[in-house]
Measured scan of single mutants.
Amino acid sequence: LNLKQAKEEAIKELVDAGIAEKYIKLIANAKTVEGVWTLKDEILTFTV
C-alpha cells in the first residue's frame, strides 16, 4: 500500500464514521503510511 492509497482508505473510513473535516485534514497531511494508520486509529479512538 502506498501513501496515497493509505490516505484514501483512511479518509473513506473517517468519512463513513462521520468524523469532522479538521481531523480528515490531519490524515491528508500525514507523511508516512504508518503515520496515516496511527492518526486514523487515534482519531477513531478519541472521537467516536
Rank of each mutant, 00 (worst) to 15 (best):
L1I: 12
L1V: 11
L1S: 12
N2R: 11
L3G: 01
L3Y: 02
L3A: 02
L3E: 00
L3I: 06
L3V: 06
K4T: 10
Q5W: 09
Q5K: 13
Q5L: 09
A6K: 03
A6R: 02
K7S: 02
K7H: 03
K7D: 00
E8L: 11
A10E: 00
A10N: 00
A10D: 00
K12N: 06
K12A: 08
E13V: 10
E13D: 07
L14T: 01
L14W: 00
L14S: 01
L14E: 00
V15G: 05
D16S: 13
D16I: 10
D16T: 10
A17K: 12
A17G: 05
A17H: 10
A17F: 08
A17C: 05
A17M: 12
A17S: 06
G18M: 06
G18I: 03
G18F: 04
I19R: 03
I19P: 00
I19Y: 07
I19L: 06
I19M: 05
A20I: 07
E21N: 07
E21F: 08
E21W: 14
E21M: 11
E21K: 07
K22I: 09
K22A: 10
K22M: 11
Y23V: 03
Y23D: 03
I24E: 02
I24M: 05
I24Y: 10
K25H: 11
K25D: 09
K25V: 13
K25M: 11
K25Y: 10
I27C: 02
I27A: 01
I27N: 00
A28M: 14
A28L: 14
A28Y: 13
N29G: 11
N29C: 10
A30G: 03
A30P: 02
A30V: 08
K31A: 13
K31D: 13
K31G: 08
K31L: 15
V33E: 04
V33I: 11
E34M: 09
E34H: 08
E34L: 09
G35H: 14
G35D: 15
V36K: 00
W37C: 06
T38M: 11
L39C: 03
K40L: 14
K40I: 06
K40N: 02
D41S: 11
D41T: 11
D41W: 13
E42C: 08
I43M: 06
I43E: 01
I43G: 02
L44Q: 03
L44C: 04
L44I: 09
T45D: 09
T45N: 15
F46Q: 13
T47G: 14
T47S: 14
V48R: 03
